[in-house]
Design a protein around this nucleic acid. Structure first.
Length: 464
RNA sequence: GCGGGUAUCGUAUAACGGCCAUUAUGUGACCUUCCCAAGGUUGAGACGAGGGUUCGACUCCCUCUACCCGCACCA
């Protein structure tokens, strides 16, 4: 029955039911930011917890870390982000095309329309967000609003222009919001080795926010300026990277399965050499069939020893690993499975969204896997004006809540049909109803979200 | 950032240079109801923000913001 899922339907449902709202909505919004409501944060956390359980808690070879978002500038110089994230772009005044100023064969002629001398001054585009640290970082200069310039040591802008002043910052105090979480792992590689000395292969895992100043955030939560990553850097012997790479292909699929994504909607894409990042010797992109088309869900990259060597060179610290009981030393190579939380969430919503017909009415429901559903059980008295039913239902609600903290909802609004529909839309797998028969024999009805069928079971049965 | 479009209660929508700004649904309260959005009474809830034209602007104009469709960008 469910055919093409439209993005608008998902966005609408997400807003209506309290999953996801536009960031800063009361003030007209802020592009590329999204806020999570009670059900959204629950769903998102369930996804992140599933990941952590599967890849950290249930494994002996994985260690969790949580690095700071603000990092020493040298991190981004060593990683190449300062260079590769800053592109000098020029725009053709005639045809509006844009080009990397440093990659033009003839810097005076537009390759698209052929017009000469149509380029203005190159403008620097950096994907990293900047901010400033320290009490002396800001100098206010009254009356210089007109002047917007940057010099080698000072960046000025109109931050306080509305007060007729201009703020001037010292670039030495400038820091970046991390554009990826991976570097927070690499910078702690040596700490973990020094403290735990794990056998190879071992991995470090991290979940956290990352920030990119996207030119054009788009497609709901798919591409935003602030987003959450779940990343693993898996350190291996240089000769054994293929083995681990294959291992992680399988692990990624296991995770997709845990998200309830149909296998036929996930596509494994071998990224050809020309399209790979400069540090990668092999990359696989897993794409998912979103309403917006088939787009990247996560990436799996063989990063070689690129990052640890960079850190070794930039910091002067030895990044070599010495095999226990042997003289063999080397810099480990790295396999990196990198997941975007929002992309996983959007895939989950896409594959769970269903419409069918019931008594001639459209029924919308989210067929979420039980372990991801924000609410597992909704508990209702059949009639809310019968105190004996309400009292019994409260008892059942309390019992279930103790068993599943935070995953049980009390619902006595309207009639029973309305409650079912409401719970359908937020993906509650089980609706538990207390009726008059409950008072006689202690059985309750449990109604299934996907089939809408109900069966009678003993209260004890469901509690267990 | 460029081009085009859009912006009305939570959601989906209607109309109008001038009367309390529609309708559906959702939502709060009360009543009713023995299982799939039944019914009744009653309440709250919107013209994205700012400026201009006008006696009067949700409506016309401008700016901003956000979203949608293309382009560009995507380490």
């Amino acid at each position: 029955m469910s055919t093409e899922v439209k993005l608008d339907d998902i966005v609408s449902l997400a807003k209506r039911r309290g999953f996801i709202w536009q960031g800063s909505e009361v003030y007209g919004g802020l592009s590329g930011t999204w806020d999570y409501g009670p059900l959204g944060v629950s769903l998102k956390r369930n996804i992140m917890n599933l990941w952590w359980k599967m890849f950290v808690d249930e494994r002996d070879d994985m260690y969790g870390v949580d690095a700071a978002i603000l990092m020493n500038k040298k991190v981004w110089q060593a990683s190449g982000h300062v260079d590769t994230f800053t592109d000098p772009l020029v725009e053709c005044s005639n045809c509006k095309s844009r080009f990397r100023a440093d990659k033009l064969d003839n810097p005076n002629k537009c390759p698209t329309c052929g017009k000469e001398d149509s380029f203005g001054t190159p403008r620097a585009f950096n994907m990293m967000f900047e901010t400033f640290i320290g009490p002396n970082s800001k100098v206010i200069q009254p009356g210089t609003v007109e002047q917007v310039s940057d010099t080698s040591s000072t960046i000025t802008h109109k931050a306080t222009a509305d007060k007729g002043m201009m703020a001037s910052y010292n670039v030495d105090d400038m820091v970046f919001l991390r554009p990826e979480t991976a570097q927070g792992i690499f910078t702690n590689y040596k700490n973990v080795v020094d403290s735990f000395y794990p056998d190879l292969p071992f991995g470090l895992a991290q979940q956290g926010k990352a920030f990119r100043n996207e030119i054009s955030p788009r497609d709901f939560i798919f591409r935003s300026r602030e987003f959450e990553q779940m990343e693993i850097e898996y350190f291996v012997h240089p000769n054994k990277w293929e083995e681990s790479f294959n291992h992680w292909i399988e692990q990624c699929k296991r995770f997709f399965d845990g998200l309830g994504l149909p296998a036929e909607s996930v596509h494994e894409l071998e990224v050809p050499e020309a399209d790979r990042a400069h540090y990668s010797k092999r990359t696989i992109d897993f794409e998912f069939d979103y309403p917006i088309g088939s787009e990247e869900l996560m990436g799996l990259a063989y990063r070689t020893d690129f990052d640890l060597i960079n850190i070794q060179n930039a910091s002067g610290k030895n990044m070599e690993y010495r095999v226990k009981g042997s003289d063999e030393t080397f810099i480990p190579h790295v396999i990196e499975p990198s997941f975007g939380v929002e992309r996983a969430l959007m895939a989950v919503l896409t594959s769970a969204y269903r419409e069918d017909e019931q008594n001639g009415e459209k029924r919308i429901y989210l067929a979420l896997p039980e372990h991801l559903a924000p609410v597992r059980y909704a508990v209702s008295p059949l009639l809310k004006n019968k105190p004996e039913l309400v009292e019994k239902a409260r008892e059942v609600y309390k019992t279930l809540s103790e068993k599943h903290p935070g995953r049980v909802m009390w619902d006595d609004n309207g009639n029973i049909g309305k409650r079912y529909r409401r719970q359908d839309e937020i993906g509650t797998p089980h609706c538990v109803v207390i009726d008059f028969q409950t008072l006689e024999d202690g059985t309750i009805t449990v109604r299934d979200r996907d089939t809408t069928e109900q069966k009678r079971v003993q209260i004890q049965e469901i509690a267990n």
